[in-house]
Write a protein that binds this DNA or RNA. Structure first.
Lengths: 131, 131
DNA sequence: ATGCGTGCAAACGATTTGCAGAGAA
DNA sequence: TTCTCTGCAAATCGTTTGCACGCAT
């Protein structure tokens, strides 16, 4: 638990992490992002990558999902619905429109549940990766 | 990667882990399960708990979800649909029937994706835990 | 000048694995 | 007996944190 603030200062690293995240094709791990940044020439510490990534998630400018082996991040607009179609091969993530998540609320209500958050992640192969 | 077998031998621990998992109210962590087993008097090593848990998942007799801080397990029937309503407070998990996951397939098809697996997890508060 | 943000390395918690011994077949 | 499974402890891996310094304000 830790209210890790709002932006107070602008730094090169902050911008670098944010941009690298937005440039990434799909979900990307903190380590991978760190790796890319350093290859790009922008030296950023791994700790900073994590700190910025978490800050972005907290402020709603990034999205995160947990998979075996760690968590993956993806840039997204604040208030975004967080539903994706993720390619297991190339990592591309396509946003899925929320056709009807009423059934979730309905199912919840039916069981006396109050929904606080829900995650819908669909994994598969994108057209390019499908053999 | 690792084809970690099928059952070859029956052991007390194997049964203990499986039963403890089935007895648990909702999703439970490996550590928590290990803790309970030892309290129940059934001494089982943590490593074994992990090994059995993974074996169960691989053979489809258990379900797992990844959350911050680790993965949680839950017993389930092979071929089960893996959709739950999880109470963030007491951990109870209610199975949600798949009213229409056609939209998932539709969205996938629309983007040229081939779906291999999808996860739908809804978190909230059950009636008892709702304030 | 004032502190927030960064980098490094140590700390951490969860999960995995090597190895020798116990128990199932 | 044979060979798998268990237990323990050490090893990993991803992520977080403490601390001193640099840079944005």
């Amino acid at each position: 638990m830790s209210a890790t603030i709002h932006d107070r200062r602008n730094t090169v690293q902050k911008e670098a992490v944010k941009e690298a995240l937005e440039t990434a094709p799909g979900f990307i791990s903190a380590g991978e992002l760190h790796h890319r940044l350093n290859e790009e020439g922008t030296a950023v510490g791994l700790a900073t990558v994590y700190r910025q990534l978490n800050a972005l998630v907290e402020t709603g400018r990034a999205d995160t999902i947990n998979v075996a082996g760690g968590q993956l991040f993806r840039a997204c607009e604040p208030g975004d619905h967080h539903h994706h179609l993720v390619c297991e091969n190339c990592g591309v993530a396509v946003k899925i429109d929320p056709p009807s998540e009423d059934w979730i609320l309905a199912a919840a209500a039916h069981n006396g549940f109050t929904v606080t958050r829900h995650v819908v992640e669909v994994f598969g192969r994108c057209a390019a990766c499908a053999v």
